[in-house]
Design a protein around this nucleic acid. Structure first.
Length: 581
DNA sequence: GCCGTTTTCGGCCCGACTGTTTTCAGTCG
């Protein structure tokens, strides 16, 4: 929470300095600090207390002082002073597409326009278009931009972006002679939400591909269309709640790797690469890696990383969160892959709120090459999910064991997703849990409590010898419901002590743990379990989103319990139970 | 403001597109 706030302050200081026309490198350093704080999973006040702020890359003496000031006083004088120098409405203007800091400064100084309403009036009375540097077209574009930010939707979910990208790729392949077309950007990096969709195409006649693209039926507005790139607003209610921007670039064959690298980003990762390129007397851009005019690499991404002296960095890691340093040293983790997953340990049958029978779930899992599943129906407190009381649970266990007898090389584990009650006790007594092969414990109610109480509640559940996995640990639903306020470091430490796994829910709306928490967890030696929480056989297909999230959290195959054979899993369950006796 | 396998001072990523220009600045990704 606090990191977020502080990051916003540094960002705002940078915005104000930009409007004031201050040194752009100084401004950049403020933005870097904002980003580093935003990405930092540890609370800055903890780092400040330990005197470790300057260990953050980009944070020097001056920024560390400002952060300390914020931690102690809740506000920063330099920030307050900057705010006094401009009318507050100007910051709002920066959000308008096509309106940057120079534009905001110009309308403020030239027309005394200080907020969106006055800007709108200046467009209507044609005074804006008479201002130097502006004109009729620009004024009109800004007018549209104001409307846009008023109606602008949020970022879309990874799964929605994937569906739209797949659809466009299919259409363009069908309608044109495009040779190769791929998604790049945050979609390729597997980010939990996507702001806009980047597509790259290799084609002989790029003009025709652009033409076909901007004429797709779902294109609501063409933002720009040149010879090698086009941007549109794409509306497809079937996929997505909002309109999303899609950018298409046409790329020559010799540059496909360079373009893929460049447009996959992140921006910050790319800046680091270009700095390394310069040091090695190269120039790196979307067309390739050059020495003078000679292309040294660019057909493949691997070639570029190799020539720069880096190990190949998987898209999931390209966030400038230490991957460049690790790649230089050849110390990148070997990330978990979808094919490593041997079983899915969280799904619901019709006994609670699932829609398909255990036999169908087992068959679908076998179709994926899995060796085991766990049936984890809800416990009695989850009334709306038709949770099982002890009697129904025991009937379910019996049924699962019968079904299991039919399999040779596949196991259906009798399990539960037991509710963690308000005081941290569980919804079934220990002697009932002891009858199960595997136990997930989850919080489903009272998520909005204070941090101390929430944390205490979960810590107690982790202590239970029968709890093997904490289900969707923070309870967040992306863009729908906030995460529980938790001391995640304390929970990770206790999970490590008690040999309890943490779940990475692959449900595209959850992705919980998130990438940053995954990384903290594996650094602390905690095992993760990537699960779909499926309610039907189709739900089992969502595993890839959980794997994508884990990969972004630097998770290796060896960190993931459900990459292990069922025997190892059973031993792991047994170990926790016996160590408590 | 930050940083150092050129550097403790002098650098700090790169190109496309647009609209305003009369040769380029601003914005964006």
């Amino acid at each position: 929470m606090r990191n977020e706030q502080l990051s916003d302050i540094f960002e705002e200081m940078a915005d104000i300095m930009e409007i004031l026309g201050e040194d752009r490198f100084r401004i950049n350093s403020y933005r870097k600090v904002a980003r580093v704080i935003h990405d930092c999973v540890k609370d800055v006040s903890v780092l400040a207390g330990a005197g470790k702020l300057q260990e953050l890359p980009g944070v020097g003496k001056s920024s560390a002082e400002k952060i300390n000031e914020f931690v102690h006083a809740g506000t920063i004088k330099a920030h307050r002073d900057l705010l006094k120098k401009i009318p507050p409405g100007l910051l709002e203007m920066l959000k308008i597409p096509g309106m940057g800091p120079k534009g905001a400064a110009a309308v403020w100084k030239g027309l005394k326009v200080t907020d969106l309403d006055k800007l709108k009036k200046a467009i209507e009375d044609h005074s804006l278009e008479k201002l130097a540097g502006f004109g009729a077209k620009k004024a009109e574009a800004i007018g549209r931009g104001i409307e846009f930010i008023k109606s602008a939707g949020e970022r879309i979910l990874l799964i929605e972006a994937e569906l739209i990208a797949d659809y466009i790729i299919r259409e363009l392949k069908a309608k044109t002679s495009v040779k190769r077309i791929e998604a790049a950007g945050s979609l390729r990096r597997g980010c939990e939400t996507v702001g806009d969709i980047d597509l790259l195409a290799m084609a002989k006649d790029g003009g025709k591909v652009i033409e076909a693209f901007v004429h797709l039926a779902e294109v609501e507005q063409v933002l720009l269309a040149g010879g090698t790139k086009a941007s549109v607003r794409f509306a497809e209610p079937e996929f997505c709640r909002d309109v999303v921007q899609v950018d298409l670039r046409i790329v020559p064959t010799a540059s496909m790797g360079a373009a893929l690298q460049y447009f996959t980003g992140s921006k910050h990762h790319n800046v680091r690469l270009r700095e390394i390129a310069i040091k090695k007397k190269y120039k790196l851009n979307e067309y390739g890696l050059f020495r003078g005019d000679k292309q040294m690499a660019g057909k493949t991404e691997e070639g570029i990383y190799d020539k720069l002296g880096l190990a190949y960095v998987a898209p999931a890691l390209r966030e400038d969160r230490g991957e460049v340093e690790a790649a230089l040293k050849g110390e990148l983790p070997e990330l978990v892959e979808l094919g490593d997953i041997r079983g899915d340990l969280h799904m619901h049958s019709p006994a609670s709120d699932g829609r398909e029978e255990i036999e169908a779930l087992a068959a679908a899992a076998q179709g994926k090459g899995y060796k085991y599943i766990a049936i984890t129906d809800h416990s009695k407190s989850s009334v709306i999910a038709n949770g099982l009381d002890v009697r129904r649970l025991q009937a379910n266990i019996k049924k699962i064991k019968q079904i299991n007898e039919a399999f040779k090389d596949f196991t259906v584990l009798a399990s539960t997703e037991v509710d963690i009650l308000m005081d941290g006790s569980l919804d079934y007594p220990d002697e009932v849990l002891a009858e199960l092969d595997f136990v997930i414990a989850s919080v489903h109610s009272g998520l909005s409590g204070p941090k101390e109480r929430n944390t205490r509640r979960i810590l107690r559940a982790l202590e239970n010898p029968y709890v093997n996995c904490l289900g969707h640990p923070t309870g967040r639903m992306i863009q729908v419901r906030e995460a529980m306020d938790l001391d995640m470091e304390a929970i990770i430490a206790r999970a490590a002590q008690t040999h309890t796994a943490l779940e990475v829910s692959a449900s595209p709306l959850r992705l919980d743990l998130n990438d940053a928490h995954c990384r903290l967890a594996v650094e602390a030696g905690v095992k993760l379990i990537i699960n779909t929480d499926a309610h039907d056989t189709q739900g089992l297909d969502l595993m890839r989103y959980g794997v994508a999230t884990a990969r972004r959290g630097w998770v290796k195959k060896s960190d993931v319990l459900n990459c292990q054979p069922v025997g190892a899993l059973r031993r792991w369950v047994k170990d926790k139970r016996t160590s408590h006796k």
